[in-house]
Nucleic acid binder design. Structure first.
Lengths: 233, 233
DNA sequence: CAGTGGTCTAGACCACGGT
DNA sequence: CCGTGGTCTAGACCACTGG
């Protein structure tokens, strides 16, 4: 007796993936309807729906009312990359984390930042520079601008012992952001703080953050020489 | 009469997000059970379940049987970044795409690649070098190694007019991959093909791809000076 | 052991959009 | 128009896990 467990939505999902990979359902082709699949697998339509909805979220198939379900022709893979705080990243490497505040000044919003964040004129900005070390070696130089208007009590924070990254995370959680990765040459402060010769290629991450449609902060994080950001899909 | 439409799972999801942002349910706190929420919103438990499941996938809450649903303390944001073919990227910029094959050789698998892909000894590898141009300016230099064992008929492909990226996408769709981003200096061929002075910082993406647990290809894509990869969350 | 989320069902109604 | 997916319901059973 081959015991047949009840079919679950995961079984259906895996079987659909399999049939697509085996070209039983080639790229661009039309899949059976939910009702037909439910009949084939001997389960409720809701179960098939859940399986196919998940695959649609992953971008493997597209679904249209009345149009049916199709295998996409040019899959657009979505790499999910977890954005954690630096301390986490470093501790995950089993290295000792050390934080240091470099500078902290309150300024009028410079024009370039005004434009980037879409702010009014004359807004006050808290400008911070920080260093993050791993096992006493430079790991990341962080330069950050925070809108005092968006987070008024930021002015009461010294940021001497805790980085702005972690403070903002608990203060303004679940915000939205735009991220840009690039390669930049080590110049000015970067040379000194990251201990590299001028012109050294460095990996840089810029992020603009909003909370409920209100600009909160812009940050530029530059990593040590040779840093790699990794992910999977 | 304030007409009250039926509550949908999206309404519940948005309301939960709102309550979390307003600190009605602070970080780390316990949410009501699905049954309680269903009663409050006047809908079925399945509807609440769908809403909360979605938030759990986004990493905003964590759910445990018997343990209940909690707001996470340190949200780990997941940036989704769409991986498309270069041609698509360029055409989306309204630029003219041009592809050129630089070299194509079949070789014994070098030791470093063997280790990286976990291949046997003496495996045959097709080694390709290609250039991708946008409006006749260098955009990306692509260096690729393909396992002949995994995709035997790759040897019949000249890759004179179509890049290996697009060919593999239609040949081995829906594969898994590991990705690494970094900043590298322009050296050797990179200087020439990307028309930059030696040492120029360049953004580089390396990707190893598997199909059904079998290593297929390793690719190193180096972008033109100043390239930025962007995403959102 | 008992409470909570995880999943499935059979049925229903609706919204979109191709024919 | 009418077929397809999108969603909701009321109920059920199960699996995990905290007390």
């Amino acid at each position: 007796m081959t015991e047949q467990k009840n079919i679950g939505f995961q079984d259906i999902r895996d079987e659909v993936i399999n049939r697509i990979q085996c070209r039983i359902w080639p790229q661009g082709s039309l899949l059976p309807t939910e009702l037909e699949l439910a009949a084939e697998f001997g389960c409720a339509r809701a179960t098939v729906n859940r399986a196919l909805r998940e695959l649609a979220e992953q971008g493997i198939i597209t679904r249209k009312r009345k149009g049916g379900t199709r295998v996409v022709t040019t899959p657009v893979k979505q790499a999910k990359l977890p954005i954690t705080v630096v301390r986490q990243t470093i501790e995950d490497m089993n290295a000792e984390y050390r934080y240091a505040l470099v500078s902290r000044t309150q300024i009028d919003c410079p024009a370039w930042l005004q434009a980037k964040l879409g702010l009014q004129e004359g807004v006050q900005i808290l400008h911070l520079q920080c260093m993050h070390h791993a096992d006493n070696r430079p790991f990341q130089f962080e330069e950050r601008w925070i809108s005092v208007d968006a987070v008024p009590h930021v002015v009461n924070e010294s940021f001497l012992t805790t980085g702005p990254n972690e403070w903002l995370l608990s203060e303004v959680p679940f915000s939205n952001a735009e991220i840009a990765f690039s390669a930049v040459p080590a110049t000015g402060q970067l040379q000194d703080f990251l201990s590299v010769p001028p012109g050294t290629p460095l990996f840089q991450l810029e992020r603009t953050t909003w909370f409920q449609s209100k600009p909160v902060t812009f940050v530029r994080m530059t990593f040590h020489q040779g840093y790699q950001m990794r992910t999977t899909y």
